[in-house]
Write a protein that binds this DNA or RNA. Structure first.
Lengths: 137, 137
DNA sequence: CAGCATCCCATTAGATACTG
DNA sequence: CAGTATCTAATGGGATGCTG
């Protein structure tokens, strides 16, 4: 989301890995996709939508620490990329529901795998970090 | 990497998902790990180290667009978390090799899955984005 | 409820110059 | 080669106030 600026004039790429090579159009898919979902909140939003559609404020509550602004921005970005669908029921007060699209569901799989890894290995990282900081005192 | 500030005083969490819940220590593993490897460059660095150890400048060349500074910072952060090991051969000129640790290799798996998804679905995102922009003209 | 608009400061990261 | 140090432009993102 942030790297748009860079990306436009930098021709980013990543080489020598099957699937990560510079492609026909001359840019790296990984870099390209990372620019979209590689920010602080996108992954968490996707995970929170994985099981069922969620309304705006419910989503905001389940992702503690996210501001209204960032949730709006993130959702808009995901919608733009076709990962999330926004549905408005014209009631009063309005009821807006966000759901993963088909594509959104499919990216939720690898993201979920990463999340699982996070849950299982966090302690390792915490300890490694503590040791590193101790050694470099 | 950036969200350290937030994390310290925000008690971030994510609820109602197996593996992503607030844990015993009261914070969300996903958020926690994302703060470490969720930046623009970490994932790309990990992928580039997946197959073999790589030296500093070689790494810099394979990740087009990364600045020397950001490569240094990213590598230091990964090393701190125990995902990357730095080996210096005291020759002249110095020869510094970066390699994934055991833990680094293990995170490379889900990251690779995400990368593969990126490679396979980028076109979809590009088209979705174009359509969205067209509709909101 | 579900946003949008604005202000504004902290952080990020590129550019540049220097070193063992 | 493999960095470090410094400066600065740009960005991200919180806070706040307003709306249909």
């Amino acid at each position: 989301m942030n790297a748009r600026t860079r990306t436009e004039e930098r021709v980013p790429l990543l080489q020598a890995h099957p699937g990560f090579d510079r492609d026909e159009r001359g840019s790296c898919p990984m870099r390209d996709v990372l620019d979209r979902i590689g920010d602080s909140w996108s992954l968490l939003v996707v995970i929170n939508l994985q099981e069922r559609p969620v309304r705006f404020n419910a989503l905001k509550r389940s992702i503690e620490g996210i501001s209204q602004r960032m949730l709006t921005v993130t959702l808009r970005s995901l919608e733009r990329d076709g990962l999330v669908r926004r549905t408005v029921k014209p009631t009063t007060p309005p009821e807006v529901e966000y759901a993963l699209t088909e594509v959104g569901q499919s990216i939720a799989v690898p993201i979920g795998a990463l999340g699982l890894w996070a849950a299982q290995n966090r302690d390792l990282l915490v300890r490694a970090r503590a040791r590193f900081d101790a050694e470099n005192a």
